[in-house]
Design a protein around this nucleic acid. Structure first.
Lengths: 238, 238
DNA sequence: AAGCCGAAATAAATCTGATCTTTAACGGAG
DNA sequence: CTCCGTTAAAGATCAGATTTATTTCGGCTT
């Protein structure tokens, strides 16, 4: 297997997220070498990546200091997944929901202005799949179509940075489903809203596209909140 | 100096952004060792970070492959700075502007709902500094206050992910100023809008906060576009 | 003769242990 | 109490050994 340093990175990342390695903690490369029984450059490379994610900082003669959460690179998909897999899940989903309520409506309105015919076609096809799998109650297939839909829309916005958020949205959607924070059968209203977004984008209706997307996020946030308060937000991993 | 690998990282990053190392190019660690006259572990650590940013992928027996731009971690402040320093500047600022138009109004409305008295006070103080330095035409001091203002607002939103975008906004603002894409003296209207945001947040006026922030982004985008079309968008570095 | 399978060669990433460099911390002099 | 030289701890770097996956080449089958 080609992933020694990657294993260490993953292990350390999860410990940082869980708070096992609290902010302000200092540890040394030597500690890591010993703890995980790896050689210097392995620990070093793992730590270097953690450093580039703003999670630790290294100073000679001092060691590695765990940085405050405010300096963490919270858009890194790896960090998002670590957090969705941790106790932090509920807070993470709330944050992400508010974030989505910012950029997805913008993406929808830009898409209504800029989407190519091809992109409109793809959106329509994908939304069709959502309808089919949603009605059938096939959650996995629905999830795949849902992710594809949001990815397509973000790409159709013609903005590379919005497009880059596709990974973030994908993590949110699949995290939500796999941790059982979704109803067992997607709600009709939610599906209808996706249909409406596709229609609005196709017909270049900027306002309608934006409004429908806003409604999607609101609905999604409410649904998750309702579920997590009911169930204590502690679903199992798939 | 303790930054060999960081130098290499920076150099490679800029070459990737500029397209000097085009997508699909393969190179080896050995190439890098030779090119920059460094040892294996130095190049390795630089490459590992580039990998974590989605810019290159490494495979045994093949080498390092430059990845398509769609998989780049475009929210990494380092990548943002590289792009703002490159030919890509105009496109990057446009993307960032559209992105900001998504999340900053949301942050403003959340801040109007959640900001603590302390945060309101800090906002007021900072906006005062913007007024003073703006009137005096002290661009550097104005920039510092501007950055502080947006950072404070994002933090006051009570959303860690929005707060994390403070670095992105900081890069945009300082990039804009240092590349001379700003008027030599900040416009009164722009300053007034910041004052209005602070007021709205203080009085818990969600709608007004959002509206004023939307106006700030719109104004900023228009100003940059106007400048960059006039000047060809080719300012010098400070 | 053409195509296919498997073993050896090899190129490149990966990992190791040792050495070098920096700097926080300590302690004595002023 | 402050300043400055000493020291050793910890990260940074290096050269070299190891692993692994691709490629190539020879022999076998059709």
């Amino acid at each position: 297997m080609s992933a020694l340093h990657d294993d260490v990175l993953d292990a350390l990342g999860r410990r940082l997220v869980s708070g096992d390695l609290a902010v302000g903690t200092v540890l040394t490369l030597d500690d890591i070498d010993t703890e995980y029984d790896v050689s210097r450059s392995v620990s070093r490379e793992a730590v270097r990546v953690l450093g580039s994610m703003g999670m630790v900082a290294s100073r000679r003669r001092v060691g590695l200091t765990v940085q405050p959460r405010s300096s963490w690179q919270v858009f890194d998909p790896r960090l998002i997944r670590w957090r969705l897999d941790s106790e932090d899940r509920a807070a993470q989903l709330r944050s992400l929901g508010e974030l989505r309520s910012g950029f997805e409506p913008v993406a929808a309105s830009l898409a209504a202005r800029r989407a190519t015919p091809d992109q409109c076609g793809a959106l329509t096809t994908t939304v069709g799949e959502m309808v089919v799998h949603g009605r059938a109650g096939d959650l996995e297939a629905f999830l795949a179509a849902d992710i594809a839909f949001h990815r397509l829309l973000l790409e159709a916005s013609g903005n590379e940075m919005l497009a880059a958020l596709g990974g973030v949205v994908a993590e949110v959607l699949s995290g939500r489903t796999h941790h059982h924070l979704m109803p067992t059968k997607p709600k009709d209203e939610a599906i209808d809203l996706h249909v409406e977004v596709a229609r609005a984008v196709r017909s270049g209706d900027v306002r309608a596209a934006r409004a429908a997307m806003e409604a999607i996020i609101t609905e999604a946030t409410d649904a998750v909140v309702a579920d997590s308060t009911t169930l204590g937000g502690d679903g199992e991993h798939a």
